[in-house]
């Protein structure tokens, strides 16, 4: 049985090549979508960013998902968390591990 974590070199190279683009796309979508669309956008972005092994960014998106899905969260609180996450994504780099 092969190690499931051992991706082929070609796949790893593809992941590395696309990481910046994937992160930048996620940041754009996240910052531009309406608050109504935010859960769906986050849902998609979290899957993409994590699959491209952007681990720090993935952790930030998971944290924001927690805020968005909290039934007690206010609209202002969600907007504040979104702005904080977008800033952190821009500042923290990719956290890439491919």
């Amino acid at each position: 049985m092969t190690n499931p974590e051992a991706e082929s070199e070609a796949v790893l190279a593809f992941i590395r090549e696309r990481q910046a683009e994937v992160l930048s796309g996620a940041i754009s979508q996240l910052s531009e979508c309406s608050i109504v669309d935010l859960p769906a956008v986050l849902h998609k972005a979290t899957g993409s960013v994590g699959s491209y092994r952007l681990e720090d960014a993935h952790a930030l998106l998971v944290e924001l998902s927690g805020v968005v899905s909290d039934p007690t969260a206010t609209q202002a609180g969600i907007e504040e968390a979104r702005a904080r996450t977008v800033d952190a994504l821009r500042a923290a780099g990719t956290g890439a591990h491919a």
Partner: peptide
């Protein structure tokens, strides 16, 4: 489940 490892999907 996403995030996924391509290797796992292939398996």
């Amino acid at each position: 489940t996403k995030p996924f490892s391509p290797k796992v999907v292939l398996a």
